[in-house]
Design a protein around this nucleic acid. Sequence first.
RNA 1: GGGCCCAUAGCUCAGUCGGUAGAGCAGCGGCCUUUUAAGCCGUUGGUCGCGCGUUCGAGUCGCGCUGGGCCCA
Length: 503
Amino acid sequence: MQPNQYRDVRLEKLEKLKALGLEVWPRKAQRTHGIAQLAETYTDAETWTNETLEGLGLTVSVMGRVLAIREMGKSVFAHLTENGEKLQAFFRMNDLAEPGWEVLKLLDMGDFVSVTGPLMRTKTGELSVRVKEVQFLSKALLPLPEKWHGLQDKEQRYRQRYLDLISNGEVLKTFRTRSRIVSTVRRFMEDQGYLEVETPMMQPIPGGATARPFTTHHNALDMDLYLRVAPELYLKRLIVGGFEKVFEINRNFRNEGLSVRHNPEFTMMEMYEAGSDLRDMMTLTENLLSTVAREVMGSEQLPWGEQVISYAAPFRRLSMKDAIAEYGCIDRQLLEDEAHIRALAKAVHVEQVDKKTDGMLLGDLFDHHVEKQLIQPTFITDYPIELSPLTKTLEGDDRFVDRFELFIGGMELANAYSELNDPIDQMGRFQAQMDEREAGNDEAMQLDQDFITSLEHGLPPTGGEGIGIDRLVMVLTNSASIRDVILFPLMRPMKPTESEEKD
RNA sequence: GGGCCCAUAGCUCAGUCGGUAGAGCAGCGGCCUUUUAAGCCGUUGGUCGCGCGUUCGAGUCGCGCUGGGCCCA
């Protein structure tokens, strides 16, 4: 076998181009218009007939990657693409300046070229450049995936995302949509008076969420640092410091398994507002999601698999116990009784039931019976205190806290609290977490003494929330896997083959 | 952590009952000066993921490994 059969052929063509005295890797592209710009301006075939286009007397230079070549004897059609838009180039031997025809024979799919000539419309009505000059911008030495089916192999699509983006048009579209979602979210928050801030991604004590952190080491200070699992404790310090409304959009890192909903690094927006509470966060969330759906996706009703999700406010609100009763078809009264909760947990094979409190078991019952069924946006409220060490208790019931999680498409999308601002209470909650840790739960939170100190200086009543941006993009773009909305998802490295090891 | 599925040419995929490897696209050589997955003629290209085993004989059967996908905990 000749593994570089294709590459060798293209290397030969490269030498021939050089022999013609051409610069194959010029420093800048010759270009007067973008392809998208031309395609948009001259899209109307009735106004811009071949005659009117010729009447313009306009000569354009456009650059693009060659994605199709159709040879017709002494004329050739090619499609150039740039930024997801395409434009046809029409080469005729008689039209081309020297050494154009020779150059054209050395053109391969995947090459970047710029073409210069007047705009025209072909017999079949397609806007095209009647090429007088062609210039190489970059010679592709490797072949592209198959033009009709694109790149199908999921592993290769994730490992070589550039090939996925070139050959699968909807992938480029999804990631452009992601960019617009993030920018719309950011603009929405700024319009609400929130200030974007940046807090440490490397933290001496990982806090703000119950999750295993990644560890790293700073050499000069000879200290261990943790990649953050959440920015929460730093953002609250900023509210202590006098900021009224802050938000941060950035990466969190959790040292956990991979799934269609989990990537070890993921993007979260967290926001905190002095003086507000959970109800304010609900309203903000409803407005944010319906606005993004409308402005980016063009509708508040969007497809999710076989279903349609409505992002129209208000979203449904349901307490955790009510949700378990409703979706688990369980008598609501049973959830008021610890013995029954234990029995229900054992019935669905929750592990280590005897070591858990009834609040923890309610969380397990919720995960088992409810989470996947919450397709339409639903705020689940009234979480057990054991699961929520940073949240204020409910008025009149200190076993539950003023927290919601928002579920869409069967996934947790957001998590919000009326933030706990009593430093004495907070210290007690940390103590409980440390006991948990002592008992072997390495996801339990660690004490952050300076955070307690900041609370002792006074945190006003504060509403706070985190929204998972990757999952938001998933539900809005109808993507079944988080890997389809993260450009470079984490992949296990490929083990080199024996022959590669010898090299 | 457990279960199921996938891995064959650069890409997309066939490969029956175990009998010595196929197509389309791409590539290469021709024909063709308005094509749209252009068409037509010819043609190159394979460590069937890796290893071990069963067998006269393995892409195919078994075991293990690697990578990926899906489901469950």
